[in-house]
Simulated assay, not measured.
Amino acid sequence: MRWSLFGVDPTTGGAAVTVHHEARRTVAVKAPCVIALGVALLAYAYVHVALAGEGLLRTTLLVEDVARSIAWYEQAGFRVERQLGGDRDPSSAFPLASASTRFNLHILAFPGGTGGRLGLLQFGNPQPPRVHTRQDQVGIGSMVLVVDVVDAQTVFTRLRQAGADLITPQPTPIQRDSDDGMTLLGYVFHAFDPDGNLVEFMQAPTPTIGPSVTQPN
Rank of each mutant, 00 (worst) to 15 (best):
A52Y: 04
G53N: 11
G53K: 14
G53M: 07
E54A: 08
G55I: 08
G55M: 10
L56F: 06
L56E: 09
L57E: 15
L57R: 14
R58I: 04
R58G: 03
T59E: 00
T60W: 02
T60V: 15
T60E: 11
L62R: 13
D65I: 08
V66A: 15
A67L: 05
A67I: 04
R68S: 14
I70D: 14
Q75T: 04
A76I: 14
G77C: 14
R79H: 06
R79K: 12
E81Q: 12
R82Q: 05
L84Q: 14
G85A: 08
G86L: 09
G86C: 06
G86E: 04
D87K: 12
D87W: 08
D87C: 00
D87P: 04
D87Q: 08
R88P: 01
R88H: 02
P90R: 10
P90K: 09
P90L: 05
S91E: 10
S91Q: 11
S92W: 09
F94W: 11
P95I: 03
L96M: 07
L96I: 10
L96H: 07
A97T: 09
S98E: 14
S98F: 01
A99T: 13
A99H: 11
A99R: 15
S100K: 05
T101Q: 08
R102Y: 01
F103L: 12
N104H: 13
N104D: 15
H106A: 15
L108I: 00
L108K: 00
A109V: 04
F110R: 06
P111L: 07
P111C: 07
P111E: 08
T114N: 02
T114E: 08
G115C: 03
G116Y: 00
R117K: 15
L118E: 00
L120M: 04
L120K: 00
L121V: 02
G124L: 02
G124F: 01
N125Q: 15
N125F: 05
P128Q: 07
P129H: 08
R130K: 11
H132Y: 12
H132I: 08
T133R: 13
T133I: 03
T133L: 02
R134V: 09
Q135C: 05
D136Q: 14
Q137A: 12
Q137T: 13
Q137V: 11
G139Y: 01
G141L: 07
M143L: 14
M143S: 11
M143G: 06
V144N: 07
V144A: 06
L145I: 15
